[in-house]
Amino acid sequence: MNLSWLEWLPETIKSLLLQISPDILIQMEEVRIREGRPLEINGPEGHRFVTLQGTLTLDAKTAYFPKRDDSRRMLDLISNHSLYTMEEELRKGFVTVPGGHRVGLAGRTVLSGGHVELIRDISGFNMRIAREIRGVADPILPYLIDLRARRIRHTLILSPPQHGKTTLMRDLARQISSGGYGQSEMSLQGIKVGIVDERSEIAGSLRGVPSFDVGPRTDVMDACPKAEGMMMMIRSMSPEVLMVDEIGRMEDANAVTEGLHAGITVIATAHGAGTDELKQRPALALLLENQMFERYVVLNRTSQGLGFRILDQQQRTLQLRDTQGRVQGGGSLV
């Protein structure tokens, strides 16, 4: 049981959370600390407030209200006593701590020339607990392989936030990079993977070194703007598969197109509950129209489990698996 994320919480909150039953702790996804407002946790079951006795409740009034000292300590812990080293993070609004956990920050922003210079008076924290689920990509990966050409297909992974896109990306990177996946007779060797990790979420890099196992042949461009990072990767790191999180802007789409034309497989994610939603977003609609992606994976996770739908280039459903793991539609692998 990996509870390393507890170390980044102030003592008062840590001791409260330690009173919660371990079954809930290991499944927890978020801890939300808001100064002067109830302490909240989020898990597969939805949100709960934490009381002073360490019990869970839905009644906000009886919850523990984190104090000013709590948020000061939290900031001190996650910044290694040195907030001035995190100006870039403060501009972006989150800090990645060892273990790959991401702490989102909210407070009052300071502007400079119309852009956010940094956040000060930080009073809201959202700790997203990063988990490595090895094998989460197992049921999906076979659909992404083009057996005849022995390559990975261009893929777009779609889901609303908190449905496990990043976890899936991490496992895909690991499996593609280490190879040996798929059925034994058609197993492929590991290939070079490049990850452009703008929000340090996929690899959870700390000083440039990934915290998670993203495979032996994987390069990570950490905290790099997506479009620029993709071009840098293509130019200098010669990846065979380029992975990028949450594309959406025009320049991202251009970089993806560039990658596709350079003969590099692109696996990307985007927010959205289905391919129809993409049509409303200009950059993604263009990619959709030009049939740039060969596979679409739409994730849907509930408290029961992870369901997904795989679509082909023309957005026809190849396979659907609901959250209980029931499979509909045969869907050929080739």
């Binding site: 000061r72 001190d76 910044s79 006593h81 907030l83 001035y84 100006e87 000060r120």
Partner: peptide, 10 residues
């Protein structure tokens, strides 16, 4: 104040 603010403030 040490360590609790941005560079200029420090």
């Amino acid at each position: 104040t040490l360590g609790t603010s941005d560079r200029q403030d420090q």
